[in-house]
Amino acid sequence: MTRAAPRCVLALSLGLAALCGAPPPDAPFPEKPGPELPAAGADAGFRELFRSLASRGSVLANFTEYRWFPFRTAPVVLDGEMRFSKELGLSLHYLRPEERMVIADAGGLVLRDASGRSRAIRPDDRTPDIGGTLLPILRFDEGELFRVFHVSGARSGGAWRIDFVPRSAELARWVGTVTVEGTGDTLSRIEIHRSSTQRIEIRVGAPAPGVTFGAADRKRYFR
């Protein structure tokens, strides 16, 4: 009844945007998933890409989120700014159409409204630990990713896409397929795809360089 898990999907789908860099809207990303990568480091090209993405520091960037619903003729669009830190987790600060914040970290989810009132949703053992499962994608934690997901990769010139399909059927039912696209060492687009009519696409603006989060930022934007 209580849909904490799908809310995690939202938070983490947006969280994946933390990995994105400047998006080339018309970049020639591969259209289809590539072959499955058997294990971490098995493909030298992707091994370097993973290491490059994993070594990135904190991120602050604008993002635009598109949500497709099966009963809508067009997606709904939300704008905001997101912050990501390996230690603090992900904070999505929606600014339009209304101000709201979603924070995803190791402790679960926090929903915070414009007035600052927070509501924590702690993970439990009643639903798959989607937060704990998908957060490795944000960190590009190679070992954990290959343990939890079937990972496949495709390249087209400098552009690439990586598809993550949960190994657990239960998790797959909640999450579907997570697709990450980028060029070079920047992520451009993330899609969480449950079905052709239920998906979320996130495009992220250029990340601010050399970001660190001070005490005030931590207090305001994280748990």
Partner: peptide
Amino acid sequence: LEAFLYRPEALGFQDLMH
């Protein structure tokens, strides 16, 4: 209903909304 789609909870209830 339209305003609700912008809330985080919307994704959790999308299978029920119809």
